[in-house]
C-alpha cells in the first residue's frame, strides 16, 4: 500500500492530538476531584423535570396587591444600574485622563492609576457587594456603591483605550499651538472621544442591569431581592414569572442600548 498523503502539517496534527489528550485528562481528573458524575445527573433527572414542570410551570402572577410593588422593584433595579453607571462614567473620565502615559500631565503615575483600576476591576461586583454589606449593612445605597466601583474600573480601562486610539494626533497639534492640559482635554480629547465614551457607557449600562439584579439578590434591593424572597418562600411559579420579567427587561434594554450604540458609532 502506498503511503497516504497528509492534509495538514505534522506538527499541527500533533498539536491537536496533545490538546485533545490534555483536555480529556483534565476532564477526568477534575470530575474525579469534584465527585461529578454524569450518571447521577441522569438518575436525578426525573426529580429535576418534576421541579421544572410542576413547581415552575405554569408561571403565576403574584397577588394583585403585590404587582405594583414588583413593578416598582424593576424600576429600582433599572435606576440603580443607570445612576451608578452615570456617576462611574463621570469619575472614570477624569481618572482616565491620568491613566494614559500619552496624555497625562504626570506620565510616571499613569501606570499606578491603571494598576489601581485593574485591581478594582478584577474583584467581581458580587464580591464587592458582600464586602460592603458586611461593613455597611444592606440597602440600595450599598448596591449602588458596589456597581459604581466595578463599572468605574471597567470604564477607566475602556476610556484610556479610546483616548489612545482616537486623539493622539489632535492632542499633538493642540500642544503645538500652546494649549494647556485642560484646554487639550476639552477642545481635543473630549470632542473626538465622546462617541467612543458614550458607546462604552451604554455597554456598561447593559452589563449593570444584569449585575444590579444579582447584587439586589444578596441585599441590594430591587427586583433581585423580590425574586429571592419568592424563591425563599417556595413560590416558584411566581418566581418564574419574575424571571421572565427580568429577561424581558434585559432584552428591551439591550436592544435600546444596542441601537443607540450603532447610531452613535455611525
Amino acid at each position: 500500500m502506498t503511503k497516504r498523503i497528509p492534509l495538514i502539517a505534522r506538527e499541527q496534527k500533533r498539536m491537536y492530538t496533545i490538546f485533545i489528550a490534555v483536555a480529556l485528562v483534565l476532564f477526568i481528573a477534575t470530575s474525579f476531584y469534584t465527585n461529578f458524575n454524569i450518571m447521577t445527573l441522569a438518575q436525578n433527572s426525573d426529580a429535576f423535570w418534576a421541579f421544572i414542570t410542576k413547581d415552575f410551570f405554569p408561571p403565576a402572577l403574584p397577588k394583585a396587591s403585590r404587582i405594583p410593588g414588583v413593578l416598582s422593584s424593576v424600576v429600582v433595579t433599572l435606576a440603580l444600574a443607570m445612576s451608578s453607571t452615570t456617576i462611574a462614567a463621570v469619575l472614570a473620565f477624569f481618572v482616565s485622563l491620568f491613566a494614559s502615559e500619552k496624555i497625562s500631565p504626570f506620565p510616571k503615575l499613569a501606570k499606578y492609576v491603571r494598576g489601581f483600576a485593574t485591581f478594582l476591576r478584577n474583584i467581581p461586583a458580587l464580591v464587592w457587594a458582600f464586602i460592603l454589606f458586611s461593613s455597611l449593612g444592606i440597602g440600595t445605597g450599598v448596591g449602588f456603591v458596589a456597581l459604581l466601583i466595578t463599572s468605574f474600573a471597567f470604564m477607566v480601562r475602556a476610556f484610556v483605550e479610546t483616548i489612545e486610539d482616537v486623539s493622539q494626533d489632535c492632542v499633538e497639534s493642540l500642544q503645538a499651538v500652546g494649549a494647556g492640559f485642560w484646554q487639550r482635554v476639552w477642545q481635543a480629547i473630549l470632542p473626538s472621544c465622546l462617541n467612543g465614551f458614550l458607546s462604552w457607557f451604554l455597554y456598561c449600562i447593559e452589563v449593570n442591569i444584569r449585575a444590579s439584579t444579582i447584587v439586589g439578590m444578596v441585599g441590594g434591593g430591587g427586583v433581585g431581592l423580590t425574586l429571592f424572597s419568592y424563591i425563599k418562600g417556595f413560590q416558584y411559579d411566581i418566581a418564574f414569572s419574575i424571571i421572565l420579567l427580568i429577561a424581558a427587561m434585559v432584552i428591551v434594554v439591550d436592544r435600546i442600548t444596542g441601537k443607540l450604540r450603532k447610531e452613535i458609532l455611525k
Partner: peptide
Amino acid sequence: RRKVGMIFQNYNLVYSL
C-alpha cells in the same frame, strides 16, 4: 509654542468639531 505654527502630514484636526 504659540509663536510657532505647525502643519502636519495627517492634518491633525479635531474631526468632530
